[in-house]
Design a protein around this nucleic acid. Sequence first.
DNA 1: GATCTTTGTCGCAATTCTGTCGCAACCGCC
DNA 2: GGCGGTTGCGACAGAATTGCGACAAAGATC
Lengths: 240, 240
Amino acid sequence: MKTLLLVEDAQDLAQLIIRELKADGYEVLYAPDGVEALRLHEEQRPALVILDWMLPRMDGLEVLRRLRQQAPTPVLMLTARSEETDRVVGLELGADDYLTKPFSMRELLARVHALLRRAELIQQMLQQDLARAERPLIDGPLCLDAQAHLVTLDGQPLDLSPTEFELLHLFLRSPGRAFSRAYLLDTVWGESYVGGDRSVDNTVLRLRKKLGALGEAIETVWGVGYRWRAHSPSRAGGEQ
Amino acid sequence: MKTLLLVEDAQDLAQLIIRELKADGYEVLYAPDGVEALRLHEEQRPALVILDWMLPRMDGLEVLRRLRQQAPTPVLMLTARSEETDRVVGLELGADDYLTKPFSMRELLARVHALLRRAELIQQMLQQDLARAERPLIDGPLCLDAQAHLVTLDGQPLDLSPTEFELLHLFLRSPGRAFSRAYLLDTVWGESYVGGDRSVDNTVLRLRKKLGALGEAIETVWGVGYRWRAHSPSRAGGEQ
DNA sequence: GATCTTTGTCGCAATTCTGTCGCAACCGCC
DNA sequence: GGCGGTTGCGACAGAATTGCGACAAAGATC
């Protein structure tokens, strides 16, 4: 479920927007002013920010400027003025889209969807670029092709869940390196994720199962975390 | 419905033309001067521009020159002078046609129709050229010929909708590569499209049905999107 | 202007994923 | 060998994702 941050000082409008966004399946954080907005943004890392132009304590443009220093989170600005200069200033400072009051909830939702999709696209493009530079990762009978998002074992495709795939990807990129659970949670699950270490354990468990005999390649580093065996023998031995 | 842009500072004439064009089923954008014309053109990308020679703030020829830097939109110029030199200058600068005031609405419409038809033809030829560079894409019993805009399965022609065709085309150009829904929406549907992920799902569903047994070649990449099954495992990633 | 095609959306079912819990097994240490 | 802490692992439930039929709106065709 995606999390959005709404920054709007008019309480009644805010309530309306929040209700609408929640009905559409989003988690909504709310900040009545810029200071609170920056705090929430840093703490929760929402997928998108809806930012009112006029705010108490800190001007919307100033908030936008500071948000941009924190992260490339997409920003949808709301304004009462439809002057072109405003639009230009907002967009130049890095707002991704722009909505003039009054607007319909339908339109707001459409813009939110579009912005989120674009953000997703950009992320995928970046990943694709990385993946393209990367040749498929091979370790004995195992092959992970990031671009195809495909893992094969002895030539047979392996059906991995997204989390399992990301974990294996990380392991294969740095065989022999030990990863703490905290690091894995940060990297694979995302830095804003809040969950227990047992999530890691279980994903490792499931991955080991799917890897069959190769599951042994994921070694437990006692008291620390896990590690992918550095030098896999060219063929898996007879042990089971 | 095609969108036209009318650039004309004489209000009464403009009103007349607008009414006439709308009655003929076009969407009409209106700019009273060159600055606004360029803005609208960039923002809305009309299919054709009707441009008056004499304009406030920016001369019609200057507008034409700048339009040409933006896009190859066909331009119909209106002028009060019938001198041949003017005609030459206008056409040299890239106006596609030319109409001398006063003119009948009947004549204007005829020219608009002709220009649009020609533009469509040109665009189609460009696409043909692009398609020609590509040889037919073949995957087992399936053959997609972009030039002929034809798909055959076991030699039988397959009836695909435009969206389905584009989607299949994209898949076959990069077999084995996983595409996110966001990427597909951007590429097949267009970046300005605002719609949900389920549109992709449904087009995939319809395509799978029409492909029959080969429908299985469209693999679901869970949590990511879709991928066309790579036939030859020797090539790991799709290249394009 | 009537009809057909295309295509986006909705709703529900089916599937898959994933965090948590409980308990057993295990490790290192004293 | 006992002990505290850590890990393995099966089970479960809630959440997220996808499949798919139905419907309606928009556009194309005639």
